[in-house]
Structure formats: C-alpha cells, structure tokens
Nucleic acid binder design. Structure first.
Lengths: 273, 273
DNA sequence: TTCAACTCCGTACGCCGTACTGGATTAGAA
DNA sequence: TTCTAATCCAGTACGGCGTACGGAGTTGAA
C-alpha cells in the first residue's frame, strides 16, 4: 500500500478499460475496492483530512435498516444519506456505489448467523445451520430479492458456507459430492423461504396481504380456471395439498432433507450415467 | 360486460381504495385486468375507435426480444415503445404497466415448453420436463432475475405446472407429497440455472465474463483468503470439488433427483417428528 | 505558514415509470 | 350525411433514481 490513494482512486471511476491499469495489482480496480471494504482489517492509521462524521459500518447499518423496513426496492442512496443526516454524495466517500453497498449489507447480516458447534453430530449441525439461515431470511427478507447466485465473497458469507461444508464433511461427504449436497440444502431453503417469507414481506410494505393478492386474482378462479385442463392440480387442491404450506413446511422439509441425505450417505457412490 | 369500458377504466387508475368499487365483481380492478389479459379468449369484436397499429402480442414480443438480448434490468417502457415505433404512452393502451408486462412475458415464454407426452413412463416425463425448463431458462435468462415465488397465473404457466404434477402423480405421489417433490425439483433446477446460466448471461451484456469476475476478485484469493479459517473449503478446492460445476452439473443433478425420488417412492410414508 | 490529503456535498445529467390531457380516427346512431 | 362516443396515440411533465463533476471547507505534516 505504498502508492498514494487519492479520492479519484478510491471512487469507482467508471470501469476503466483493461489496458489502463499501469500497476501490476491483480484484478480490476472495482473488484479490489470491494474486497478491501469487505476484508480490510482496520480503517488504517489516522490520516490527513477532517474527521469523518460517519463511518462505513454506519452506512451499512443504515442500508440494512431501510431494507429491513421498506424492502430492497425502496433502498436508495438518497434514503440512506437522509437516514444518516448527510448529503447523498458523501456516501460515495465510503462506498463505491449502490451495488457494492448491497454486497456489504449481505455480508453484514450473514454475520448474525450463529454457527453450529463442531462438536455436535452432523445432523444437528446441519439442522441448526438451516434454522439459522431461515431465521436470517426471516429477519432480512430483502435477501430473498437478491439473486443469490453470486454471493459476495465476504468473511461472514464464507464462515457460513464453511460451516455447512464442514458439517457435511463430518457426514462423510467430500469434494464435489459435498458441494452438490450443500447446494441441495441451500436451494431448498432458499426456495421455501422465497415462497413463504417473501409473501409475508411483500404484504408488509405493499399493504397487500397474500390472501388479498389471491383475492385480487379471484376472478380467475371463478371465470377461467378449467378443471378439465388441469385435472391433477384440481385433485391436489381438493385433497388439500395446497392448503397451508404443508407440502413445503419448514420442519417437514428439514426432516425430508436429513433422512434423504442419510440414505444417500448409506447407499452412495454409484456414478451417474 | 354491460357497463361501458372507457379508457380510464382500462388503465390502471392508481390502486383505488377498497370502498370505491361499486360493482360486485370479484377481486381488485388491477387483478381483474391482468387476469383478463392472460386469459381473455379474443380481442372482443371489432370496436368503435381507430384501428390499432400494434397489438398486445406485439408488445409482449418486443418485451421478450429486449429482455433476451439486453437483460431484464434493461427492459424499459421507452425501449419497448421505440422497438415498436410508437410513443411510450401508447403502450399503456395495451398493458397496465411494466410489472404486468413482465407477467405476460413470462406466461408467453412458458408457452415454449414442449410438454411431455402422458404416455411416457413418469421418469422420462420428469426428465423431459426438466430439460425443457432448463432450455427455457437458457433461452430467456431474464426469467432467473424474477423471484419465481409468485409466478403469474397464466395458462401456459399452469400447463407447465400441471405437467409436472401429473408426472409425479403417475409416480404415485399425490396431495401434499406431490407438491413437496414438485417444489424440490423446481427449486433445484432454478438454483442450478441461476448458478450456471446467469453467470453466462451477465457476462453477455456486462462484457464481464465469469472468469473475469473471479479474476477481478483475484486480489481476495491472494491477499485475504485464510486457509486456516476455511479448512473444508480449502480441502474441497484442492480436491477439485469446485472445478467445473461438476457438483451441480445438470445431468448429474437430474440423475440424483430421479433416483432420490424413486427411493422415496419405494420407502415413503413415515411421518415427520 | 503552506499545502496536500481528505471529507463533504450542491448541482446537473440522463435514465426510469407513469399521470394527465388532448388531438386524431373511426363506427354506429340520428 | 352528420353527429357523437369510443378508442388509439402521444407530448409534456413530475418525481424518483444512480452517480459524475467540481469545488468548498478541514486537517495534519512539512
């Protein structure tokens, strides 16, 4: 960290082309910046300018607060600035832009995950991991709006991933198999959370409850639904299969997953086609 | 449909309060409108005004075209209008707003799903269903940006759902069990697609390939990754478990799912806790 | 004391969705 | 034929967004 860091360097400076990096540091400038924000150990020594009135954690906390109460779509730089009592552009001193702020927010809430103790049996570890993940989705439903395909590579996100990998390793899965089962668990959890939580969440800040939503679509069921065209759905409906989210109830799903994994751990190891 | 339908009625007219619906039709006005757009059989008889220069399918097709090439984020009403050679506000004659347009676009691309023949054995039906779904995600990656928790209730969306439910019914699953397994399949597919396709897709219109992305984060691996803090991840990495998406390769995943379901179909039926 | 480094932020630009309003066009009623 | 109501079409405008730019004020080190 020898070269001087001017404001222009710290700001995002609009995606420079591949040629214009004269230094030999790895990666792109934006990538380096966000990695530094996620991992940088200290706000480096006291420096030259005036004392900052806010801090990076403040900005992240404000973002989380707004997203928690109003949803991800309502999160704007102006609102964050307002919440902190500063001008909008001041935020760009701390954060390169909105999307990087979101990455930081995600890593920050992953820090709330209470990691399972390595001494527990693997089933309990996986179970606690799943419950904690669910709890975080429930506390911060805006996570569910995020694609989740490319999680930010932050310390807390990695802690959480490591915990699941480690639990599955204890169950006897390693390498690609471990990754596959880990993905199985995460995607099930995410899918169920999206179905259950984001309904309730959307209700909270649009004022339209899930029932009201379906009621608003009621004309469909009355006028257009064709019982002959969709016989299986009709049968499931009449059997109560859609009542309550019993089919993807969290407890049942967890049970299913664990027993499925146990079986797979017992049988195991015939390669695919 | 006796009461006159003026433009003000057809337009979205800003979420009227619950009191102001004088008629006794079910659901909210917006809900009725989008349901009609999805299901209305014909553009009702020839009517009074000037001949329309474009049509609803044109608008939907333009939206799909733009989203296919530039991504969901780049889909704007202005671009759609431009693509059709009309003014922006003209679109609102055909579609209540952007979000409804997206719903219509989704149902439209679900119409590309080649439903499996009911005469095939259920495994082949599920397999073909999964391949078709994957193909559609691949052709229209912007679907993956959509939450997918609340799919639009359109005819094609329901056709696709019905096909999976029916195949699983043939496998012996009914009621809530059918729903649970159907969700399992869909969420796995969606998760895998989000991981694999949206990478490639993002690369296409941001110009940043997945390798370039990881390269841009390269400083992280060099400077910050702590092999002691993340031992399992390190082990998996060294074993090649992250190389290639072998762990969640589509074929392997499909195999895994089908055999898992078969086992579950054989064992089955011990209730949870 | 000077000055470079730094924080803060007002202004402005180009996007976005869409409300409002009115003009042009047409089919049926008179 | 003339009139009129229904309908399509769209210009203008408003409030919101992310953020580039440039400059004013503040501070510690030279």
């Amino acid at each position: 960290m020898t070269e001087p860091t001017t404001q222009r360097d710290r700001r995002i400076d609009g995606r420079g082309s591949a040629e214009d990096r004269s230094d030999d540091q790895p990666g792109t400038p934006e990538g380096r910046r966000v990695v530094e924000l996620l991992w940088a150990p200290a706000p480096q020594s006291p420096v030259r300018g005036p004392k900052p009135r806010i801090s990076l954690p403040d900005v992240i906390a404000a973002g989380v607060a707004i997203a928690d109460t109003e949803g991800m779509a309502a999160l704007s730089m102006r609102k964050v600035a307002n919440h902190l009592g500063v001008g909008v552009m001041s935020l760009y001193t701390y954060v390169p832009g909105r999307s990087e702020l979101v990455e930081l927010m995600i890593d920050r809430v992953y820090g709330e995950h209470a990691l399972p103790s390595p001494e527990l049996p693997w089933q309990q570890r996986v179970e606690q991991w799943a419950r904690e993940t669910w709890r975080i989705y429930d506390a911060h439903p805006w996570l569910l709006d995020y694609n989740m395909a490319r999680l930010p590579v932050g310390p807390h996100v990695l802690d959480v991933s490591e915990a699941l990998y480690a639990a599955l390793l204890a169950a006897g899965f390693s390498g690609a198999e471990n990754v596959a089962i880990s993905n199985l668990i995460q995607w099930q959890l995410l899918g169920a959370a999206r179905s259950m939580i984001s309904d309730a969440d959307e209700a909270r800040h649009t004022g339209v409850s899930a029932e009201a939503y379906w009621d608003s679509r009621a004309s469909f069921w009355e006028s257009y639904f064709d019982w002959n065209r969709y016989p299986t759905m009709a049968a499931i409906w009449e059997a109560g299969g859609f009542d309550d989210p019993a089919g993807w109830d969290f407890e049942r799903m967890l049970d299913r997953l664990l027993t499925g994994i146990e079986q797979s751990s017992a049988v195991s190891r015939e390669p695919g086609t």
